[in-house]
């Protein structure tokens, strides 16, 4: 048991991890990520890849909503921008997948910043409605601008290859997506150790005080939209290359709500929360449908209503989280850690 954490240099004081337990946990996580693809079958690899994409998208949304306090319902639209930009550049212009992914990130950042313009005047629910407009406008453009996007028809993207290796097999894509997850995490965690991240949190907590401290509200709100959308665009572009097919149905308002649910359940304003939320919300439907398959054998009549039960359970879980642990899974995880840090004593 430790009696406290004592630092003798400022470097130690500013470090992200202080205790052995923290370092060991990180090491275990890394080993797990490295070993997992060799042990898992295709089903679990697919889930892991979906989680990876969701984590990137959730970190992006969390930067905007959780850290900067600008509620956004435009997540699906921004993902669509990333997916279609990457898809079109690769499918129609023959750009390599990695280049189109990078371009897609910048394009989405630009589009995100443009739709962030109302944020200087609008706050809270009003901004939410403005970003909802972004969602609808983007999807409308996607489904009606036939010459470029192909309209409601699916856009087929060629398989991504790197040095002659096909990247979108589940096993190969796993390494790509999780390397990017780690990159995004690294960059985002560091962002919130420095003036940019602190300015974002300052805007969320007390925007007037932030402006008096020298934070240019307009610039930093747009920057939050841009950085957030950059990651969201990455998640969209990865979806396009992974699935090889881009359709507008994958980026509806449901996606925006799903991602909002992820970061609320995971924990607003916490990178770990984005992880936990993305894992939870990706696994929940999978667990529910597996459960449905088991129950189907026991109660034959139940088969027809299983999809509805899944929807209802989904909603129920969100409501329960909001009531029982508003700070999300991240808080539960913290409580567990606190409990074991002092174990076997109660305080």
């Amino acid at each position: 048991m430790i009696s406290g954490i004592f630092h003798s240099t400022y470097e130690q004081d500013m470090a992200l991890r202080h205790t052995h337990a923290q370092k060991i946990r990180l090491a275990i996580l890394i080993v797990f990520l490295l070993v997992f693809p060799f042990l898992a079958n295709r089903y679990y690899l697919t889930l892991a890849n979906q989680i990876g994409i969701a984590v990137i998208g959730a970190i992006g949304l969390n930067i905007l909503v959780g850290y900067t306090g600008q509620i956004s319902l435009g997540q699906g639209g921004f993902m669509a921008v990333g997916a279609y930009t990457a898809g079109i550049l690769t499918a129609r212009m023959g750009m390599p997948w990695w280049a189109s992914t990078l371009v897609a990130c910048f394009v989405t950042a630009g589009v995100g910043a443009a739709f962030g313009l109302p944020s200087l005047r609008l706050k809270g629910l009003y901004l939410a409605i403005a970003t909802l407009a972004a969602q609808e406008i983007i999807l409308w453009v996607v489904t009606h601008w036939k010459a470029v996007t192909g309209g409601v028809d699916a856009l087929v993207v060629p398989n991504p290859e790197l040095f002659g290796i096909r990247m979108n097999t589940d096993f190969n894509f796993y390494w790509l997506v999780w390397a990017l997850v780690i990159l995004v995490t690294f960059a985002s965690v560091n962002l919130f150790r420095t003036r940019f991240g602190r300015a974002f949190i300052a805007i969320r907590d007390q925007d007037i005080a932030a402006s008096v401290m020298g934070v240019d509200l307009f610039k930093y709100k747009l920057l939050a939209f841009a950085i957030s959308s950059f990651w969201v665009g990455l998640a969209g572009a990865l979806t396009a290359h992974y699935r090889s097919i881009v359709t507008w149905e994958r980026f509806t308002i449901d996606v925006s709500v799903l991602y909002l649910a992820m970061i609320i359940i995971g924990g607003l304003g916490k990178i770990t929360g984005s992880y936990l939320g993305a894992i939870f919300m990706t696994l929940l439907p999978a667990v529910l449908s597996n459960l449905g398959r088991v129950v189907k054998g026991v109660f034959p009549g139940v088969e027809g209503i299983i999809p509805f039960i899944q929807q209802a359970t989904f909603g129920l879980v969100i409501i329960l989280f909001l009531i029982l642990e508003p700070e999300g899974l991240n808080k539960i995880w913290k409580n567990i850690k606190d409990y074991f840090r002092l174990w076997p004593f109660s305080y």
Binding site: R198, R204, Q206, A209, G269
Partner: peptide
Amino acid sequence: IELFRHMTVLD
């Protein structure tokens, strides 16, 4: 008081 409530004193 208009502090940034969720930050630490240091931040």
